[in-house]
Design a protein around this nucleic acid. Structure first.
Lengths: 330, 330
DNA sequence: ATGAAAGCGCTAACAT
DNA sequence: ATGTTAGCGCTTTCAT
């Protein structure tokens, strides 16, 4: 920048004004503007955003902390966050926690140090303390997909309880009586709500059987899900339907149902919480719950941007999911 | 930092030395070190990485430009890149091009301005010019999954041609004679190699029939793939197998094969180029090609880091993919 | 063993 | 309409 100024015999300040688009305001003459722009192009000058950030105090970047970018749900979520942020002229730094507290803590620290202008995060079990630090430093924050009840901050999540209850109602209406639920044992509201929504409805209809509720340990999901499927298969009182509380659990469950020769839908109905891109490779009918991922991501960014721009209110949104059906051909 | 220095009556420089772990070198006394560390913790001081970057000239971040983070392949790739970068203490900024040149150009410009210490990118059709700028600015660069033949830079890709040819050989060996290929018409080496690998082998065996090679337009893939499936179904000379050149094409193809009542594997064999997480929801046997995504991502980071650390050689790797089988139960 | 000071590249307030 | 200057928070060289 100094180079440009020198060669043109003008000052660095003037060059800065032109190059950061503040030339209009009647401040710099068109002639100078032209010359500066032209020379900048010739020298192929690129502004140094780091230096700019240091002076302005804004990094024009936001941090996103998710569980695992290779997971289809978070991949989609991140995609929409990134595309939305792009519209605002913001850059996105993503990090994975792999559902681990230590990685979550590291991620927050790094983003804080990098002076991201705001943070969107998917809470991890036990992360309240470090999350409070974000707030203490007055860095705009939005929780997504889950939230810490003990923390007073913005969040945007899906109404897991409601849609799960609705799904259970629907299963019962269709004549299912013995309904099983397979869910991780992780103590996060998103998952617990899904399970509880089912259980409450089953109870209302006097159809609740604790033996049909399976809590799966995340680390040993393969074995535990397999075990659950076998139990359901051998249950003397025939199981009518299985509600799988998340994508991965559903995939694994289907695998072992196939292995056990269970005719899905004919013998046992299944439900998947989440839409999977590749449902169509299986020609089997079942219901699934589609979350409004695009809304989730875009709105998270919108809320964050409002906070970055000085708005001081806390926004807590509960979005509605949809029950949909993957149909069978023929 | 100045605050800490003032309160302790030492200089900013000393504090800097301690806090950036350079206290040892016999430079700062243990006593001062202690005091500085303690006070920093009390005041809960966070270093400003932006300022640090400005002085050191290293941003400790790398940029990653991919097609679309919501795509399972790129989600996985990005995951491994991020995890590897984390090990090196680097932060990752990701952006999606959506396979569009304008977005690709924007992405490169943004990363260059942000002073990322290196860039890993998935080339987009026509992006040679801006990619040259990265090189002109001496920013370390690694291409992944694809590469620009006209550009002399590092890359790491999968040997698409070889594995596709091998797959075709295998199909023929198993007795398939009429083998179809469904592939996007995008002019990127990764895709063209997959198609060509098949075609060359078919030709060698005198089994090549141009009518069975379908070039699919990316924008109208649904309709075009459907049309292709119908054609195959109605082909008077029975089609034995279909090689789908990528994940999305496979999923869509399977959908329409189901719709048309084609018995997959029994009537027509299928092959999917790429592994899909949720194959197991379908109890259908078929072969697929698994790319070494983890290697791809990790090695890309390793190569980049070597360059960042001053190594000047260009590394071009061709990794081997694997043929695997999704088995059917019973 | 520690202090002082320059400077990274830019912006913004103030002069002129 | 444009020049000057201070300073963002840190590292690093050179003195002391």
């Amino acid at each position: 920048m100094q180079d440009i100024a020198d060669k043109l015999g003008v000052s660095k300040g003037t060059v800065s004004l032109v190059l950061s688009g503040k030339a209009k305001s009647g401040r710099v003459s068109d002639e100078t503007s032209q010359k500066v722009r032209q020379l900048a192009a010739e020298m192929n000058y690129y502004p140094n955003e780091i230096a700019r950030s240091l002076t302005t105090g804004k990094s024009m970047s936001i941090g996103v902390i998710i569980t695992d970018i290779s997971n289809e749900f978070f991949g989609n979520l991140t995609f929409h966050i990134q595309e939305r942020a792009k519209k605002y002229g913001y850059t996105v730094i993503t990090t994975n926690t792999n559902e681990r507290l230590d990685e979550f803590n590291d991620a927050v620290t790094i983003l804080l140090n990098r002076q991201t202008d705001g943070i969107i995060l998917v809470p991890v079990d036990g992360g309240e303390e470090i999350t409070q630090r974000i707030i203490a430093r007055h860095i705009p924050l939005v929780q997504v997909d889950r939230f810490y009840p003990a923390i007073n901050a913005s969040y945007i999540i899906v109404d897991n309880y409601k849609i799960s209850a609705k799904m259970a109602e629907m299963l019962i209406e269709k004549g299912n009586r013995r309904i099983a639920v397979v869910c991780y044992d992780i103590k996060l509201n998103a998952l617990m709500d899904r399970k509880q929504g089912c259980i409450d409805v089953l109870n209302q209809h006097n159809l609740f059987d604790p033996a049909l509720i399976k809590d799966i340990n995340y680390e040993q999901q393969e074995e535990e899900i397999y075990k659950a499927i076998i139990e359901f298969k051998n249950n003397p009182d025939k199981v009518d339907a299985i509600f799988f509380c998340s994508r991965r659990v559903f995939i694994t469950g289907m695998k072992y149902m196939h292995k056990e020769g269970i005719k899905i839908s004919e013998e046992i109905d299944v439900v998947c919480f989440d839409k999977i891109d590749s449902f169509s490779i299986a020609n089997i009918p079942f219901n699934f719950i589609e979350q409004p991922i695009k809304d989730l991501g875009e709105k998270a960014v919108d809320i964050l941007m409002n906070q970055i721009n000085g708005e001081n209110t806390i926004n807590q949104y509960l979005l509605e999911a949809q029950i949909r059906r993957h149909a069978q051909y023929e």
